[in-house]
Amino acid sequence: MNVFRLAGDMTHLLSVVVLLLKIHTIKSCAGISLKTQELYAVVFAARYLDLFVHFVSLYNTVMKLVFLASSFSIVWYMKRHKIVRRTYDKDHDTFRHYVLVLPCLLLALLINEKFTFREVMWAFSIYLEAVAIFPQLVLLQRTRNIDNLTGQYVFFLGAYRVLYILNWIYRYFTEPHFVHWISWVAGIVQTLLYADFFYYYIMSWKNNVKLELPA
């Protein structure tokens, strides 16, 4: 475990925990895309299938449980909670996310580390995570308002991805034959998706103006 990976896991944890706490506290999910949250729940469910069959470390198991619990709780709040669900902007959150799921599944069947159910699902979760933020970014473009809840959420997610890339560079140089092309390519694609958001987020923060995404 290197510092980049630990920092990456912590910012990832922060993004989901902050989001869940804020939704729970202000009883509102305005500006948050349910589609992205559902995609993330699928990502974790598909990736952590080996939760009980393959013990890596206590840290690994605890973090997997926290990610599963928080992502499913967020979806539950946005779909089922009597107050929160009314604040969900379903008219604007219309990105057809199954358009993302199918290609990821097909790609996972074609490109995986081993053609077993668990490895295909793992690859599927890696590809799906790379595009899971799409509905959220589309929603931001549509509603053009980025309140700090959403801004922080996307910012932490982007930071987690950047830190993971640093982690892979570190591991590549310190561990023999540490090569994971699938995670690396998907991870870089995912980080690029955040790049433009990062640019506008930092610019708005620097000029101390409200964050506006270009049309």
């Binding site: 890596v56 470390s57 690994n60 973090m63 997997k64 990610f67 580390e113 993971y164 023999p176």
Partner: peptide, 10 residues
């Protein structure tokens, strides 16, 4: 080794 192949990252 098998360790290197397994997915030890979240």
């Amino acid at each position: 080794t098998d360790k290197a192949k397994t997915h030890d990252e979240l």
